[in-house]
Design a protein around this nucleic acid. Sequence first.
DNA 1: CCGGGTGTCAAACGGTTGTTTCAATCGAGT
DNA 2: ACTCGATTGAAACAACCGTTTGACACCCGG
Lengths: 230, 230
Amino acid sequence: MSGTRTGAAPADTAELGSAARDRILDTAEAFFAEEGYSGVSLRQITTAAGVNLAAVNYYFGSKLNLLREVFGRRAAPINAQRMQRLAACNAAIDRGEGGIGMVLAAFIEPALRGGHMAEGGSAYRRIMGRMSTSPLPEVREILSEIYHEPASLLIATLRRVGPELSERELLWRLTCVYGAMLYILADTGRMEKLATGDFQMSRVEDALAYAIPFLEAGFAAAPVSGGDGP
Amino acid sequence: MSGTRTGAAPADTAELGSAARDRILDTAEAFFAEEGYSGVSLRQITTAAGVNLAAVNYYFGSKLNLLREVFGRRAAPINAQRMQRLAACNAAIDRGEGGIGMVLAAFIEPALRGGHMAEGGSAYRRIMGRMSTSPLPEVREILSEIYHEPASLLIATLRRVGPELSERELLWRLTCVYGAMLYILADTGRMEKLATGDFQMSRVEDALAYAIPFLEAGFAAAPVSGGDGP
DNA sequence: CCGGGTGTCAAACGGTTGTTTCAATCGAGT
DNA sequence: ACTCGATTGAAACAACCGTTTGACACCCGG
């Protein structure tokens, strides 16, 4: 089988962004957020973006690569903010300042604010939350890879400010943090149906004000297992 | 035509009628858990189940109705356990006993244990967790409807044992509880990639032992906002 | 003037999708 | 034995899928 023909022409000119290329990314982001990866066809995306069907394969090589690029361009600023703020947390910890809430906020806030996105922020937030539990392994793989580095730093930082936990208990608590954060991002509309007032899960400021103290209190709790360890 | 193998098993079982129907449900459950709703075709399901393609439309009418039925048959025992245990919680509260942890366990444990399923439990847990944040609105709608009643009772019960919270703050805390529970159910494998030891998110006993105290501590925290302003 | 990237376009490719159709088969009931 | 309703079977339906192709327009350095 001769040659992988992915990304035909513009392989090296990734820096340059043609107008059509960006329009595809924006439209794909909005559609993926609303209908999911398998739920959207390239024809829907290209017609809504006003470009030819072949353009997506011309610029990205395949549908999965398009998704990868949709994630990539937004994940870069989020990861940069996470790394910087977690580094600041570690510096504060060195001086004996800072606590669990500060560390959790350093990780959660960049995601909930979606970097500092002018437009399309809510669409990308929904993509992040919903595709993290996507049934397709290749989709989850993209997210797991792209966000792996700050997640590792988060764990190391939490070890320094939290109660002494076994790795198992730390990861279970982190699971709860992840789940809460991603569910907020997913914006499923489920809580709105249980509310009588004007609750809205898309209010980022409310999420930060209420969720982080909740998770901080959970993380600050005394360990369940004193000194277990296989 | 005369040689069609009718001798397979026509007269041996007294359970007439729904043998094929149940086989479709079991197979669909396993496939939906692994590949999602859009990711599985009816041909995959029917050939794996050993039934004709038309059988699924004959018994269920449509693919979406098949999914509805996959949810329905498992949700019934889960909801029954939730309602019964939450009622017991309210009775205990009337006697001045019980706390937040008891109420949260009454809601979470039936889901994590998947009712009391002998087989296919892990498959259904993954479906629950992953499809709760499905991008397809009609899929989320099914889950939101089917689990609505015990969720309402949970809210009413939490109001009796928790700190005095505005509806908004209560729902934000409940969002965190939901997110954690569903992320555990989804079993994405993400935490395993961050672990160095033998962490496994599919261990239900660990999830109950570690997650519920975490969420209880979060829910017991003092309110962020004193007065429940608009 | 030319030649060669660069981008766009309509059209077709081979396959798969959920759903429907209609004949054939089965297990009883009277 | 016979019908009757319930099930199964193979095939076709119309629509859609991601990807590829090859022709056409454009701009720019020469």
